[in-house]
Design a protein around this nucleic acid. Structure first.
Lengths: 223, 223
DNA sequence: AAAAGTATGTTGTTATAACAACAAAGGAGT
DNA sequence: ACTCCTTTGTTGTTATAACAACATACTTTT
């Protein structure tokens, strides 16, 4: 186990490598490998472990009753997933967790962290604090997705998403972590309509793009 | 201060009335009253206090760059708001918090809870645990809104929302906490289009409704 | 290098939502 | 009961997104 890597993750923020070693042992954690497309957590399951991505990345997806796939989030190496459901008892997970590429996951039973946390155990308290911070941040990323999908027009959604990416990267030229289909799913629009709108926006001189590289030319927010 | 009321809230779960009294004093909490429509937290502010609603209810809203108002959530008596931003340092709040009716709010500085939490203080640990649970639950309610707004058709969104409400209330007949405009905002659709679609659904024999009372007759999920 | 597979772009048609403008119903206050 | 005001429903028009089907890259495999 790469404790140095783990000590740099947000989950183990302010926890030393040796302390991590103790925690992982005490909480009976284990690792598992997955291939691209493998289902890690299935909609409807009751889970009590969080996952830390040691290698690769995963997608949080929802398949609605009509079969439309909706990508809520892509989570990469060093980050965690499942904490929302693991922190609430008997709450069915409403999403699918799917390996976006070959990956390796470390699972930690969070029930134990929450139930056995006593004043005596300093690591546990820090772990809970870190979880709180992470959950809050996930909260914000969900709020952000809601922002990007609340404009009624496709152009509005694209502008919302791209302008946020530009701010995030601190540059009007940037790469996005989605391909067209994934971006369409994220914004809840049809892929071909998205492609179509992107090329219209290029014609209108608002953006330049090639694959997942974008450049914002003139963000006319009133158009 | 009504400590009995507070001891029944989720935030003070497993904390006694006397302990609450100590905490509130120690954390320099204070209360404030608002009229309907008053702005409690404004988009862009850096906040470090969470609010507990002692009386009334509040709306979490977003006004986008084109002036569309988007209601993310309605939060009622005994529940908290602002914890997402208060738990992360220097994170601007991206929403407006508005009094949905006359209300009274108890503010608690969360910075102090997180920073001064030591092994010696048992209440603080419990408070953080409770916050973690609440944040996780808020997370789920955001995910739920994403579900309700991800179908591409208005009917799909209405069905998603109403069928969830029916499950929540455990009855095919129920009241919803929104008026038409608020529901339209929540589902990110035009109000008149929503009214129109609702009456079509009634004609199609799927639902019956009057104002905010609904009855699901025949949830044909494949239509 | 050819073949197969995947991702992206393009176009035309159809379905649907937004919008605007108005009508009707329901409350609140005088 | 009348007026004012707010909420909800209705209709027709216009704008836009979904959808389908195909074309054109670009990748990966053999």
């Amino acid at each position: 186990m790469d404790y140095i890597f783990l000590s740099k993750t947000k989950l183990f923020n302010e926890i030393t490598e040796n302390e991590i070693k103790v925690i992982l042992n005490c909480l009976k954690s284990y690792t598992k490998k997955y291939d691209k497309g493998d289902l890690i957590y299935k909609q409807g399951e009751i889970i009590s472990s969080i996952g830390i991505i040691l290698l690769g990345s995963i997608n949080i997806e929802n398949d609605d009753i009509w079969g439309n796939k909706n990508i809520l989030e892509n989570i990469s190496m060093g980050n965690i997933f499942g904490e929302t459901y693991a922190c609430i008892e008997n709450e069915e997970i409403m999403v699918n967790v799917v390996a976006a590429e070959p990956c390796e996951i470390l699972f930690i039973n969070i029930d134990k962290v929450l139930r056995t946390c006593s004043n005596a155990c300093k690591f546990h308290i820090q772990l809970i604090k870190n979880l709180l911070s992470l959950t809050s941040q996930k909260n914000i990323s969900l709020t952000r997705k809601i922002f990007h999908t609340s404009p009624k027009s496709i152009r509005g959604r694209i502008l919302s998403y791209l302008s946020y990416q530009a701010i995030l990267k601190g540059n009007t030229e940037f790469e996005i972590p989605f391909n067209r289909q994934q971006l369409a799913d994220y914004l809840s629009v049809d892929r071909s309509a998205l492609s179509n709108e992107l090329s219209k926006m290029e014609k209108d001189g608002i953006i330049l793009y090639n694959k997942n590289k974008f450049k914002i030319i003139n963000l006319n927010i009133f158009s």
